[in-house]
Amino acid sequence: MKNLMMAIAALLAFAVSPAQAAGKLSIYHWFEYIPQELLDKFSREFDVEVTMDTYDSNESLLAALKAGALGDYDVAVPGDYMVKILNQEGMLDTIGQNELSNRGNILPQWVDVDFDPGRKHSIPYQWGSTGFSVNRNIYQGDINTTAMIFDPPAELKGKINVLDTSGETLTLASIHLGIPQCTQDRDQLKKLDALVQGAKQHWASFNSDGAKDVLVSGDAAVGMIWNGFGAKAREEGAPIEYAFPKEGYIVWMDNVVLLKDAPNRANAIKFMDFLLRPENAAAVTNYARYTAGVKGVEAHLDPALAKSPEQNPPAGQKGFFVEACDAETQPLYDRIWTRLKQ
């Protein structure tokens, strides 16, 4: 009997341990943002066992790293302003000048960026915009204004979903008012507070990870959404159109960063180099429906993307990156957000 138990235990141990790979790579990534086939391809090519955990906002990435996850992961994919914050917090490792053989593939406009001058810690992953999509069966008028969210027409009242993150929702509200982000001006902050307080009665829900589903299911007729996620919602059958509001919208870039104390630094560098190859960057774009920051992806892209309205804004648009407020200003925005969700 004892022998039988031991035999079963040995068999189980054998069954659950994956085939031995030469190395490991531990990724901390957004949800629904990289195709499994691409991870498998990397795994096969470099004989590396890849594990991935996911997060749903830049802030929860920061919180997890602060709470002790630094040292568990090799790479993460923070947005623009969060790259700057992680760097200020000393959580990023520096990539050597000659470590990435495909460094030259980065598009020129993304080589020297404000949030990481000289790209010392990061490479571009994908970029896109945060705006909103409107259900065209319910509303046929002009949708290219942030009033759709903050001062909606009668047809759309009570059918609006906003993202459940203060950064994006309050930034879009600031764009609607035409006031700067991270302001300390009292009149401007009072106007911002009054705007969101007044608009909330027209909102049905605050939902980020379900932003696509509420549009597909018809629970919301207007939904704040990231452009690629909006494209996916449309491709899944939602009769929606992505707006390019005249007041402006949020532009962002996600970046693969090399984390400090990475347990598998060499494999992390290989992975970043792998993602800088045009065919691999294109695979991410084909999956996530955003835009790559790498040269030469066009030949590998899904032809539908070239015509996709979400990826092809009309000329002359105003895009704003989200700013990271300083320690004196951030509590003001936190207070507005808490009052809103009271």
Binding site: E59, S60, A63, D164, S166, G167, K200, N207, W337, T338
Partner: peptide
Amino acid sequence: DLLGGAKNFMIGSLIEEQFKGAAG
């Protein structure tokens, strides 16, 4: 969050916001 639309904080989501949200 799922059925009520997360429009108002509950005790659980208020506390979560302090650790995982922008408030930090």
